[in-house]
Simulated assay, not measured.
Amino acid sequence: MLRRSRKSLLQLAFFCVVIYIIVSLLRPPAPKLYLWNTIRYQTTAASLPEARGTCPGLDDSSKPALVVSYVAADGDTVWLERLSSKYNLCIYNVDAPADSSARNLRVPANRGHESITYLTFLIDNYDSIPQAGAVFVHGNRFQWHNDDTLYDNAASLAALNVASALEPTGYHNLRCDWSAGTCPKDSGPAQGSLETYINSILQPWSARSASDAAMPQAFAVLFGGDDYLKNRKSKGLKLSRSDPVRAQCCAQFVVSREAMHRHTREEYLAIRQWLLDSYGTSRNSNAAPRDDRIAGRILSYLWHVLFIPQEDGPVDLAKLNEQACPSAADCYCRLYGKCDLKCNVRGCYGQYRIPPYMRLPDDWAELHGNDIYEPAGVKALHGRLYPKAFEP
């Protein structure tokens, strides 16, 4: 009798384990929630930079602001000036010589690539952001990541329907194609994974590996502030090893005024000081990495976290990832009016393809810089760069 009872108990226990495993596999996973609602980083600097980043003309403008992070190497700004009928131009001269007499469109330091410009605009123009919102871009007209058949940001900005782009969430990346960034699930390991950490050691020259490995700590410091630094085990601040942040590259986007005002001016100041505190006498070990490639790339994956609205409470990372990666077909239709394309979720036929080695030929601007709205000879020149037709 005792043997039969033991056997029955073992069978029952085995049956219960099997049922538990089946239920666990069928049950939807619990949402991954993060406390990424408010920037809480606290600077150690004795003083903050003076306000020299005002963009003239915003108070009375009915046009969206076009915020441009420009350096001398980007060339002339004629292509931007030709967009002035559509946008209120805010062209920040990032590497201009220090000049105490310049009170407008200056940044405190050439730091974090385009991030220093974007943050300075948000800080110094916080109360003057146009009702129509703002578009944030780089100063170079032709770049490998511009989502245009000729990589021409002039054509993209001329075609951009700002109001339509802002309808779903108040934020939208200017890229539609998924072939760069981290939108596809197979685009790489989670930023906090062991694989990412090992890659950063084996490939110290790779800005992507280094910035991905540094991002979980950076986000935890930015959103956790002193609370995280005093208690490194604070839940909901640091990315787990299995949770990726999915987003489009490459830090060019459109944002509504409401979305920008979801965070206070002081929060944008804190992010900028996180960048600046890496240098000078007040250097803070918890501030941004000193390597600009790494610091700038970390912030390129912060913008959508700041601007895409979430329900009250912690951020649902899975939902945020989905919102940050709309289908290419929907994106091209809403942003650029291209609504009858042959597409899959990642890309659309004939619209974009990564150039070899993520680099445009040195003479690309010379060959394609004559026309701003409808570049001539697209089909003829398309084959020069692409020996094969793109199939989505």
Rank of each mutant, 00 (worst) to 15 (best):
M1S: 09
M1N: 06
M1V: 08
R4H: 03
L9G: 06
L9C: 10
L9Y: 11
Q11F: 08
F15G: 10
V18S: 01
L25G: 01
P28Y: 06
P29C: 04
A30M: 10
K32L: 01
T38H: 11
T44I: 06
P49Q: 03
E50W: 02
A51S: 14
P56W: 04
G57H: 12
D59G: 06
D59P: 04
K63G: 11
V67K: 13
A72L: 02
V78A: 14
E81D: 13
E81M: 08
S85Y: 14
Y87R: 11
A96H: 11
P97N: 05
A98T: 14
D99K: 03
D99W: 03
S100T: 14
S100I: 12
R103Q: 13
L105V: 07
R106T: 02
G112F: 10
G112W: 11
E114Y: 02
S115N: 09
I123Y: 11
Y126C: 03
I129T: 08
P130T: 08
G133H: 05
V137N: 03
N153H: 06
N153E: 03
A159M: 02
L160Y: 05
V162D: 06
A163N: 12
L166S: 09
E167K: 15
W178G: 01
S179L: 03
P184L: 09
D186F: 11
G188E: 09
G192D: 05
S193G: 11
E195Y: 13
E195L: 15
E195G: 14
T196L: 10
Y197P: 00
I198N: 03
L202N: 15
Q203P: 00
M215N: 07
A220L: 02
G224A: 07
Y228G: 08
Y228L: 05
R232S: 10
K235C: 00
K235S: 02
K235R: 05
G236Y: 11
G236Q: 10
L237T: 13
L237E: 08
L239R: 13
S242E: 12
P244H: 14
P244F: 13
V245N: 07
R246L: 12
A247P: 08
Q248G: 11
V254A: 15
R265M: 02
R265H: 02
E266M: 01
E266S: 07
E266F: 01
Y268H: 04
D277F: 03
S278D: 06
Y279T: 06
S285G: 01
S285N: 03
N286R: 07
A288G: 12
R290N: 07
D292R: 15
R293V: 02
Y301N: 14
W303A: 08
L306R: 12
P309D: 00
Q310N: 13
Q310R: 15
V315I: 10
A318M: 06
K319E: 12
N321Q: 09
Q323A: 14
Q323I: 08
A329R: 13
C331M: 09
C339M: 06
C339F: 09
D340M: 01
L341F: 05
C348W: 12
Y349I: 07
I354D: 09
M358L: 11
N370A: 14
Y373S: 05
E374A: 14
A376M: 10
G377I: 06
K379W: 02
H382N: 14
G383Y: 11
L385G: 15
K388N: 00
F390G: 02
